[in-house]
């Protein structure tokens, strides 16, 4: 019994910050979703139940934002996983100068979003930017932020560049952990390199891959800074993601209650997707 108590004592310091700064804000934030509270209205907040959830379902911009977010997640997450896996495999295969290369891929993660945003806005500028400046020599001009499809691609490129570091080192660490004997055994059995990758690397890397997939999904659904600074949601609202819509609703239009209701929906979407993923992975 005393032992148990001691165990909980170990958790206690964490609870001191967890309760006031995670549980309480979450509870308040969620309950705000049931109130119609417009900050700049002289009318007091009033309880409206699920009315604002219904409002969100009838709000074309909510659906548009959900669509933009899903599109981003759908393309960015697999691309992040594939690219980081490719880089990790490459880094793993070379023995010399590995730490230099590794640092290069982690480097962008350390630049803050204000600077990253400014840099990419400049590089992507259609008429006067760095990319099109070089592409001109090939006679190509791309409307990087001018067309919905290209704008989304630009945001994905930026995100890949900025965020590839963390998944790469996680996967690299996973690769380092696979015992060499497995490969040697596979070689003896006459498996070629593709075969070895499919039957040794992938299964043994699965936990790392799942971890990367889950954390990337959670993070991607909450994408905000990149689109907010670089494309400002345009063109034609094509990169106006959910967090952006929620931010504008709460902090520009001052509709706190409605913003909270939509955040709640976003939270639910993330939880459902994560659970689906969890069960899909568990089955095998």
């Amino acid at each position: 019994m005393r032992r148990r108590l001691a165990g909980y004592l170990f958790i206690l310091p964490y609870l001191f910050v967890f309760i006031p700064f995670v549980v309480l804000p979450l509870f308040i934030g969620m309950s705000l979703g049931f109130f119609q509270w417009e900050m700049l209205s002289p009318v007091e907040p009033r309880f409206v139940g699920l009315q604002q959830i219904r409002l969100a379902f009838n709000d074309p911009y909510f659906w548009n934002a959900l669509k933009a977010t899903s599109l981003f997640v759908l393309f960015c997450v697999p691309m992040t996983v594939i690219l980081s896996l490719t880089i990790a495999l490459g880094l793993h295969a070379i023995k010399q100068r590995q730490s230099i290369y590794r640092s290069i891929f982690v480097l962008p993660m350390m630049v803050n979003i204000t600077v990253v945003g400014l840099l990419w806005r400049w590089m992507l500028n259609t008429d006067f930017g760095v990319f099109n400046g070089y592409l001109k020599y090939f006679g190509i001009q791309i409307p990087w932020t001018g067309e919905p499809g290209w704008a989304m691609l630009s945001i994905i490129m930026l995100t890949l560049w900025w965020g590839i570091g963390a998944p790469t080192i996680i996967l690299l660490a996973g690769l380092k952990h696979i015992p060499k004997q497995y490969y040697e055994a596979a070689k003896v059995d006459g498996a070629n390199s593709v075969r070895r990758f499919v039957s040794v690397t992938l299964p043994l890397l699965k936990p790392s891959l799942v971890f990367v997939l889950v954390t990337q999904l959670i993070a991607s659904f909450q994408i905000f800074g990149q689109t907010f600074i670089v494309t400002k949601g345009g063109p034609n609202n094509s990169t106006r993601v959910l967090m952006h819509h929620i931010y504008e609703t709460s902090f520009v239009q001052y509709r706190i209650g409605y913003g909270a209701a939509m955040s709640m929906l976003l939270f639910l979407v993330i939880v459902v997707i994560t659970l689906i993923q969890y069960f899909l992975v568990k089955e095998r």
Binding site: L124, N125, F128, T145, G146, E147
Partner: peptide
């Protein structure tokens, strides 16, 4: 007039273009 498709369109003016 070019189709507006830029984030910082005034850059071109500063470049003298």
């Amino acid at each position: 007039i070019p189709k507006p498709q830029n984030i910082d369109p005034y850059t071109g003016f500063k470049q003298g273009k």
